[in-house]
Design a protein around this nucleic acid. Structure first.
Lengths: 328, 328
DNA sequence: CTGAAAGCGCTAACAT
DNA sequence: ATGTTAGCGCTTTCAG
């Protein structure tokens, strides 16, 4: 209809080569008139790419991951990719299967992965043909990238905030002193750094470990802390969910938050803004994380040569809300 | 390698026509030896199907939907379909766009849809070429199916349970007396039915509406109920999240659950099993819902002629936990 | 800058 | 029951 060859149409549609303004116009008009839509399936076959990326998170319904997912989807769509969502359940075997050799086979072109059960070791042994970007936990390695915020610095800032409010007996809920708990350990490192900075001693009995980062864990950890002979005057929780549980316990015990005990969380999930009191938190820039991860993954997918793994840091900020400052 | 034609290989791979045992063996051996894997992309192009279905839920991170999603994914995968997840945010416009004409265009073969903002009207006006199964809200229509549980019966049973425990002033939290609140209204209908059955009057002031079915809504509704001159002795909440919020408020007011006020929810989300007290609830058979929805959708996708819309009912059961019985 | 034509790897009507 | 073969609709090498 435009009087040109498929080649030219393809060029116009994909914005490839330089096409004369006049022919481009002709083609675009024909496209509009015909209501033509490229057949995605055919394109996939021709290019050998599925146009899909999969993002694997431990749990879909954990607010932090759900929000991250919601940030990733539009960015990926923008870049021409569809997003497949997979839940690993923090199951080591399942996670291993996902990144194992040929797990994909034309189902997806790359993976954004938030590991829980897998060690750095596992991650490095994976199918090197699978473009991979890891989010949150772990650090990068030779053949994949990592996107996250500076956990140590962010945690230091969170604790520094408590110190600045005059708190001195500061507890930490969420440490995970084992190989797969790297992210938690970085937060503990920040916790210690802030103490050092302020010339405070760390009372080791105030650092409590939890298997996961959810409400129940927070509630029980807080209970333990409140039963100490000398309970803390403030708590740094490694997730907002933990903070929510911890606050719940404190209130149930008749304590006032933040007057009797200040609580700060991590993640800035929406729930925290509606909690009573609203929860102070470290707010990672989820959009930036999403953007960096997708950009990097798309680059990897497009690259012919192997790409060296890099560590990308997104921004974050401290958001002071009622659970520490008490004011509105 | 097996000395047969592509046609035969295709037959074996897809289990199509009758293939001689001997040739099938030869082919299977060759497949194993070569490590052959069918190219999904090519198959898609040849069949004109993408092998993907999309499931649209209002909010990914609402536990009920997240659990439903987790039930659907394996079933769909089993049936050879990949699952795309989309969140509508309960946004009417967005939802309309999703089911509008040509919204899909080879991106997916069918849709499982849990509407929130769309009316029955919108749903019927959609692109009739898109195979559709609706979950939860609404009822079926000429050109799509509906899968759900019998909300009226289930709600009746929930309230009957309260009655059987000797409760007489029973409240309901979650009514939505407007066009898009059909599911809520069915629960209210069950609430009334149980009253009629027991010869109890319905006190209209005990039926409180909420915009959504979440914790905050439940907490605030409960607050209103407790401020009545003659507060209820039990509450039927239209979701477990609502129940969780309601219980929270009750406990914060120093009431005992269930002694002072019994609470029953709906959905049987995992959180309810860990709540303190654990939450009694109506437990829809999510696996059956998933199975029915996928089966029906696959059938629709495969069918050449238009399929009449049907209403499929999945099972459910009453699960009595601490929030009503108090026992463990 | 544009055209011609060869696939991408599979399925399925048609033939035997 | 199995072989032949023509596409599916696009991308892309090679010419011009």
């Amino acid at each position: 209809m435009a009087g040109v060859s498929p080649r030219t149409v393809s060029n116009v549609v994909n914005g490839y080569a330089r096409v004369t303004e006049s022919t481009r116009l002709k083609v675009e008009q024909a496209i509009a008139q015909l209501g033509y839509r490229p057949n995605v399936l055919a394109r996939h076959l021709a290019t050998g790419r599925s146009g899909q990326i999969v993002v694997v998170v431990p749990y879909i319904d954990t607010p932090y991951f759900a929000e991250l997912l919601q940030a990733i989807i539009p960015v990926a769509r923008q870049a021409g990719y569809n997003v497949l969502i997979d839940q690993s359940d923090g199951d080591r075997e399942h996670e291993g299967q996902l990144i194992g050799p040929h797990s994909h086979r034309s189902l997806f072109d790359g993976m954004i992965y938030s590991p829980l059960g897998l060690s750095q070791q596992d991650l490095s042994n994976r199918d090197p043909a699978l473009p991979l970007v890891v989010i949150g936990e772990r650090t990068s390695a030779a053949n994949f990238d990592h996107v996250g915020i500076d956990d140590v610095a962010a945690s230091t800032e969170a604790v520094r905030h408590l110190v600045s409010l005059g708190r001195r007996r500061i507890a930490a809920i969420g440490d995970q002193p084992y190989p797969t708990g790297e992210a938690a350990q970085r937060r503990t490192a920040g916790f210690r750094a802030a103490h050092a900075e302020a010339g405070l001693e760390v009372d080791e009995s105030l650092i409590v470990s939890t298997p996961r980062f959810n409400r129940v864990d927070g509630a029980e950890a807080m209970k333990a802390l409140l039963e100490l002979d000398s309970p803390p005057d403030s708590v740094f929780c490694y997730s907002d969910l933990v903070a929510s549980g911890a606050i719940h316990t404190a209130l149930a015990r008749g304590l006032r938050v933040p007057e009797d005990i200040a609580v700060i969380g991590y993640d800035d999930i929406e729930d925290g803004r509606y909690n009573r009191p609203t929860i102070s938190t470290i707010s990672p820039d989820k959009r930036e994380i999403a953007r960096l991860a997708v950009e990097r993954l798309v680059m990897r997918i497009g690259s012919k040569e192997p790409v060296p793994g890099v560590d990308l840091k997104a921004g974050y900020r401290l958001v002071a809300r009622e659970s520490t400052t008490g004011s509105y």
